[in-house]
Each structure stands twice: as C-alpha cells, then as structure tokens.
Design a protein around this nucleic acid. Structure first.
Lengths: 244, 244
DNA sequence: GAGATGCTTCGGTCGCGCCCGAAGCATCTC
DNA sequence: GAGATGCTTCGGGCGCGACCGAAGCATCTC
C-alpha cells in the first residue's frame, strides 16, 4: 500500500501543468537553469523554484550547480521513458476521443513536427520515415515487442560508422535489438534506446542533421536531405504525415 | 502546449491515491466492479464512482456492463505499460533515496513477492528467476533494449507448447524479441510483452502455476515447483531475493 | 407489484497545494 | 567594498477537487 502512495505521489508530481511543462522541456536531454524553466512553464521564479525542489527531492530531476546557475536535467533514462510513456498514452487517448476527421496530433510547430530530439534520440516525421524506410528496405524487422536489425541493417549502420558489435564479439544477436518508441506526433514507431541514440549521434556526426540550438527542434541539413531521400526514400518537400 | 496539458491531466488522474490504488488493483488484468474498487481504494461507493467516471472518460479504463454490475478494467496495454513504468521509476527512486541497508522493496506479502500477475504476464521472484535461469542456460540473450531468444530458448518454449513462429514462417528473427519489464519488487528484469504473455499462458495450461483466485497472487503448484527447479534451478524453499 | 442491491448524481464541507510578491542568500562583476 | 544577477525561502490569498451522505435511477429477485 505504501508503494501505491509513492506511485501516486510520482504521478501527482508530473500531474501539475507547470511541472509537466518543465519535464517536457527537458526531454531534449539538456540541462536548463531555473529561470529558463520558469519561463517555459509560464510561472514566476519563486514558483518554479518550489516545483524544481520537489522534483529534485523526488529524484525526477538532477541538479548541477555552476556558480550562481543551477542546471536541472532529467535524472535518469527511466524518467524519460516514463514521460515518453505518458506522451504515448495521452496521444492515443486524445486521438481515440475525437476519432473521426484527420486529427492533427502533436505540436503545431511545423519544424518540431518534422524532426526533434526525444531525450537522446531523433523523433518526428523524419525519425518515423527513417524507421519506415529501414523496414521497407529489409534493414529492420518489426516485432510486437520491439525491432531487430537484419544483416542489411547492421551493414547500413556500419556504413554510417555505427559498429554495434564493438567490444562484444559474441553478442551479435542482442546488439540487433532496438527499442521502438511510439512517436508523439506521428503515432508510428521510431528508433529509440541504444540504437536510436547511436543513430542520432551518427547523423549529427555525418552532418545529415544539426542538433537543436535551442528548444528540441532538429534541423535537416541540405546534405542530409539528399542522403535521407536516397537511403530511405524520404521526400522532405511534401508532408510525410499523409502517407500510410 | 495543449499536449502538455493533456499529459499533465493524465498524470494528475493517476496522481490521486484512491485512483492509483484502483489502477494498481486492476493490474492483474481482471475487470472489477465499482464496489470492489471502492473497497480497494478505501473510499465510499459514491466517491469511487466519480473517480471511475473520470478515468473512463479519459480512456484509462474500459467499462463492461452486465446487468446491474459495472465491470471496469485497464483500457489498453499502453495504459498498463504506463503504470508499470511508474512502478519502476517509483521503485528506483525509493530505493535510491534510502540507499544503504537492504531495503525491502515491493509489497510485504510474502506470496505476492514470490509470484504475481503483472497485467498479462508473470512477475515476482519466480518470474525474475525464470528469466535469470533462461539467461544462465543460454536460452535468452540479454541486451540493453530488451532480450532475444536463442535457438535453445525457442526449442524450450516449443517444448512448453509455445510456437512463436506459427503463422509467420519468415519472421523468425522478430519473433525472438522479448520485452523485458523491471520487476517491481525484485528490481531485476522479467519477461513481459508477447512472450511473457505466452509463457504465462503456457505455465497455467501446463499446471506449473495456478492463476489468482483473488488479488494478483499466483501460486506455484507442486508440479511447477519441481519443474521450475529442474529447468531453471529455482529452489523455492529458500528466498531467491538473496541471490545476486 | 414491493423490496433489495449496485451504481450514479447532487449539494455542501473542507483542506491541500498552486500561486505570487517581498525579503533573504549566494555568487559574480567592477 | 557596492551593486547586479540568479535562486530560494517565507507568508498569505485563493481556487480546485476529494470526500461524504442523501437522494435518485437501473436492475434483479420474489
């Protein structure tokens, strides 16, 4: 019973709009100052400070102090996973409630819908398109509980400089497993987990995409636009959300 | 921003102790009446009715009416996943807060700690032991984003009457993927997802375990005790929680 | 039909917690 | 040192929502 109480406590913590806004803002994986988070949540600094202290105490956030600045960030991947889980359920529910007519899910910001950071991996139309392209090209095998890379998939990632078997020669099977994350705006799976993180790192390193200068929005470089089109059949001029 | 609001709304819904108690009670996958849930949450029928109506409206619960009885159940696997996610985060946090000394995680009920139903699959010491045994015997390959069955694992499950490749001959790779769920009380992984569900079904069918007559507690049959010991090295006379 | 049972709706009470402004620390700059 | 900036703590106002009991509705039993 005491566990139910702490479970409810954690949920209630996320259940406040101001705190939820802070957590979602931090889902890009960065660490932000208390003032910045106050602005993101639309509350005064004193109110934000109280919220942040509570989330820190509860272990949802971690704190790094540099001089007079206090940088807050998501404390652990499991917390990010929880927020993702909430986004998915919330998305499904709101989509289910108003079923008819093509609902516009996710944020209204066009660039944010296209490509954004989801804690440590890529999300949005582009990420969903990458996953769909890999599936279509036989690089990714989709199961009910996740995905698995095929030989072609391993080779493709290797061509991007991602060597998943490094350091563990005998673990070729599990290195192929990839966690899938139901895309917040697209409602279709994209690559998350270890491989999602590695893929995002490679895309940045190869300059297909550029990480967010502020916010969560990831931008596609001209080079990346061509590469994505050639490798995954992504035509970024039109809206991917119409397909399927 | 509107999405943040609905995310916070969903979290706030779970954030009330009475509603959280109801949801956790329903995590055994059964459908319970409003009166039963009121008792589980420790509130009057009228209060419970209000809570249930809100969770129904939000899509967290589904309703089935039979005569004058209203049976409520978890609406979707994604909702169960969200509760699981909350349990894991909450567990990790409470474990992290009081780090030293061997914390007794999860429920105090001995039988519940040993084996219980987690929505649609087995959880508790036995479930963790099964996963550990399969890993030790080379039947399950553990990765960072999940697990995968080896050939030995496929054969073992087939010997239990679980044929994962049925109906989809070409999908042998993805049929091996299994979602892992961090055990609420044990803090170590057990089998969840499609394979976890199938495994639990097989264990019940083979009479290794008996499903809950009430509550979430699953009982191990004398037959199952022997089988579990032989196949996984589980010695159920002593406490598994000491190992590792 | 009358009575019992399960559930919901309604009205009213009450407390938790969200919010802000002001004041108090801590840190950096000059 | 004085002043500015970032953050937290404190005190008080106020609204949302959890809660209950009573009444109302639906369903089953006899």
């Amino acid at each position: 019973m005491t566990n139910v109480a702490s479970l409810a406590g954690t949920a209630a913590l996320i259940g406040d709009p101001a705190r939820a806004a802070m957590l979602v803002t931090l889902m890009d994986g960065r660490a932000l100052t208390a003032t910045e988070l106050a602005g993101a949540a639309g509350v005064t600094a004193s109110t934000a400070s109280g919220h942040l202290a509570r989330m820190l105490e509860a272990g949802l956030l971690a704190l790094e102090r540099q001089g007079r600045h206090h940088y807050y960030r998501i404390a652990a991947p499991s917390v990010a996973g929880l927020i993702e889980s909430l986004m998915s359920v919330t998305g499904e529910l709101s989509a289910a409630r108003r079923q008819c007519r093509p609902v516009r899910t996710g944020p209204s910001d066009r660039a944010l819908r296209r490509a954004r950071l989801c804690y440590d991996h890529l999300a949005g139309e582009v990420a969903v398109g990458i996953a769909a392209g890999m599936i279509a090209r036989g690089q990714l095998d989709l199961g009910q509980d996740g995905g698995a890379l095929t030989d072609e998939g391993l080779n493709f990632l290797a061509s991007l400089g991602i060597d998943l078997d490094s350091g563990a020669p005998a673990r070729s099977l599990h290195s192929r497993l990839c966690r899938l994350c139901l895309d917040w705006s697209e409602r279709r799976p994209h690559l998350a987990g270890e491989i999602g993180r590695a893929l995002y790192g490679a895309l940045v390193r190869e300059r297909w995409v550029a990480g967010p200068s502020q916010g969560r929005t990831v931008t596609i470089t001209p080079l990346g636009r061509g590469k994505l089109e050639r490798h995954f059949g992504l035509a970024l001029a039109w809206s991917l959300s119409c397909s399927d």
